[in-house]
Nucleic acid binder design. Structure first.
Lengths: 100, 100
DNA sequence: AAGATATATCGGAATTTCCCGATATACCAA
DNA sequence: TTGGTATATCGGGAAATTCCGATATATCTT
């Protein structure tokens, strides 16, 4: 896990916001309940709607978070669902104390 | 404390390296023993020597780390000494779990 | 197969970061 | 005061990031 890549992923207001939303998917993205559950997280379209950014930007940002290991994705049909990888945050929290 | 600014400060290999060196100033900067102790940390010149970067870059990088609250400086005569602010790292470690 | 929908990728303009050399400022010593 | 040393700040070229619109790909529906 590259530390610089990890911190760069977190160095953006929008990406931090997305991570915060993904902490409580049901309340942050009530719209998704109409076509899916939340077991695998939230689909890109829902995040795009809430963020107000373009689809391409949101897709790119989610890819950055995933490359850093902070979220994981699941493809289901034409949807890709993203959810937080909580283990990564716990690792990071410890890494701050031991490695940085 | 601005989270984005904090993570940006950590998003650079050289700055992470400086922070690592400052964890063990005596062993990382033995050269400083010749003109000063380590109570207040390490002076800019020592860090510059070890990093191989220019003086202006190192000074700038230390300022970035200080603005983020990760280090604190003490001016003594013509020297400025920098040392880690360990409390900030503990805060950050907790912040990762609660806020991010 | 053709059209519709969801997401990913590409190309790029604007902004920021990286790191430099030059210069300014602060302090010390003679 | 003059000169030397340590650090900070300024201006800038190169590279990276931000976010966009356009396009490609994958999947579903009919």
């Amino acid at each position: 896990m590259d530390q610089v890549e990890l911190f760069k992923a977190l160095s953006n207001k929008t990406r931090l916001q997305i991570l915060a939303w993904l902490k409580e998917p049901e309340t942050s993205f009530p719209g998704q309940a109409e076509h899916a559950g939340f077991e695998d997280g939230v689909c890109v379209g829902q995040i795009q709607l809430k963020s107000g950014l373009t689809q391409s930007t949101v897709s790119e940002y989610l890819a950055i978070l995933q490359r850093a290991g902070l979220v994981q994705s699941t493809r289901k049909g034409q949807w890709t669902y993203y959810k937080r990888n909580e283990a990564a945050f716990e690792q990071l929290s410890k890494l701050i104390l031991s490695d940085v």
